[in-house]
C-alpha cells in the first residue's frame, strides 16, 4: 500500500518532466535545441505565484472548475495500475467509475468555457464535446472487449500480472490494434496534432486552449498540471497494455504464442523493479512517438477529425473480431 502510494506520487511529480519530452522531440526533429526538461516546473511555479484575475461576467463554476478537473484526474490516477503493480484503489466496476470521473472533469471545464460568454470559446466548447463523444465510443468498446476476455470489471485486473495477454486468448495482433486505437484516443483527448495544435496562436482553430483563454495565475497552473496528468494517464494505459509483451519472448510472430508460466522468463519471477524500468521505458517511448507524430503531420481540418476517430473504431472492431472465439 505504502509502496503504491509512493510510486504514484513519484509519477505524478515527474509527469511535467515527461510532458517536456514531447517538446524536446519536436525540437530535435526540426534541428532546434528545445526547452529545458524542467521548463514545465518553472512555468508551474511562476503561475502559482501570480495573482488571479476574474472577469465580471462569470459565475462560481468558473472559479471551481479547474479544481474539480484536477481532483477528478487525481482520483482516476489512484485506480491506475503502474507497471503491473496493483493500484491504490480498486473495486468491481471501477472502469465505469473512471469514465465518469474523466467526463465530470471535462464537463466542468466546458461549462467554465461557456461561462465566459465569448463566442469563440463557445465554439471551442462545442468542438470539444463533439470530439470527446466520439472518443468515448471507442474507449467504451475497448473496455467492453477487455471485459469479454477477462470477465472482470476492475481496471487493475486487466493489467496486473498480464492477465489480458497471457491468460486470455488475446494474441499479438489485437494488442497492436488496440494500442494504435488507444494512441489515437490519446491524441484526441489531449488535443495534439492532428486533432488540435497546442502551439497555435489562432484562437479560431483551437479546441482546448480556447476554453482556457480566460484563466490566469494559479488556475492556469492547475489546468496545466491537469493536462500533463491526463497525458500521463493515457500513456500509462498504453504502456500497461504493451508491457506483458516484453515479458513474453514471442515478439517474433513466427513462433506460436503460448502462455509462459515456467522457466527463467516466467512472469511471476520478474522482479517488480525491473517491471518498473520496462514500464517507464515504454512510457517514455510513447511520449517520444507522440512527438514524432506531431512533427510529421499537419493538423486536420476540423470536419475530418471524425474520420480519424472512425479509423480507430475500425481497429477496435477488428481486434474484437480477432479475439471473438479462441
Amino acid at each position: 500500500m505504502m509502496r503504491q502510494l509512493i510510486l504514484l506520487l513519484i509519477f505524478i511529480i515527474i509527469s511535467p518532466l515527461l510532458y517536456a519530452i514531447i517538446s524536446r522531440t519536436k525540437a530535435f526533429l526540426v534541428g532546434k535545441k528545445g526547452i529545458p526538461f524542467l521548463f514545465n516546473y518553472y512555468t508551474l511555479i511562476k503561475l502559482f505565484r501570480k495573482n488571479v484575475i476574474y472577469s465580471k461576467t462569470i459565475t462560481p463554476i468558473f472559479k471551481v472548475a479547474p479544481i474539480i478537473n484536477l481532483s477528478a484526474i487525481l482520483l482516476v490516477l489512484m485506480f491506475l495500475p503502474l507497471g503491473n503493480l496493483s493500484p491504490l484503489l480498486s473495486f468491481k466496476g471501477d472502469v465505469l467509475f473512471i469514465f465518469y470521473l474523466l467526463t465530470l472533469g471535462k464537463i466542468f471545464m466546458v461549462l467554465a468555457g461557456v461561462d465566459t460568454g465569448s463566442s469563440f470559446e463557445g465554439m471551442g466548447c462545442a468542438r470539444e464535446v463533439f470530439f470527446s463523444a466520439l472518443g468515448e465510443i471507442v474507449l467504451f468498446l475497448i473496455f467492453i472487449m477487455f471485459y469479454r476476455l477477462t470477465n472482470q470489471l476492475e481496471l487493475s485486473s486487466y493489467f496486473v500480472e498480464g492477465k489480458l495477454i497471457l491468460h486470455s486468448k488475446a494474441t499479438l495482433i489485437p494488442i497492436i490494434f488496440i494500442s494504435i486505437a488507444l494512441f489515437v484516443i490519446l491524441l484526441l483527448e489531449n488535443a495534439r496534432v492532428p486533432v488540435d495544435d497546442p502551439l497555435t496562436h489562432l484562437e479560431l482553430t483551437m479546441i482546448h486552449e480556447v476554453m482556457i483563454l480566460d484563466y490566469s495565475g494559479p488556475d492556469l497552473g492547475i489546468i496545466h498540471l491537469t493536462s500533463q496528468l491526463k497525458m500521463f494517464f493515457y500513456a500509462a494505459l498504453i504502456s500497461n497494455l504493451l508491457m506483458p509483451v516484453t515479458s513474453v519472448m514471442s515478439i517474433v510472430p513466427i513462433i506460436p504464442v503460448m502462455p509462459v508460466t515456467s522457466g527463467m522468463f516466467s512472469v511471476d519471477v520478474i522482479l517488480p523493479f525491473s517491471q518498473l524500468i520496462v514500464f517507464t521505458a515504454i512510457l517514455i517511448s510513447v511520449y517520444v512517438i507522440v512527438g514524432v507524430v506531431e512533427s510529421s503531420m499537419g493538423r486536420y481540418q476540423l470536419k475530418r477529425v471524425p474520420k480519424f476517430v472512425l479509423s480507430s473504431l475500425v481497429l477496435v472492431v477488428l481486434a474484437t473480431i480477432l479475439t471473438w472465439r479462441g
Partner: peptide, 13 residues
C-alpha cells in the same frame, strides 16, 4: 502557412 496547419518542420526551415 505551414505553421498554421501545424506542419512544424517546413515552418522551422
Amino acid at each position: 502557412l505551414s505553421g498554421d496547419v501545424a506542419f512544424l518542420a517546413p515552418a522551422a526551415y
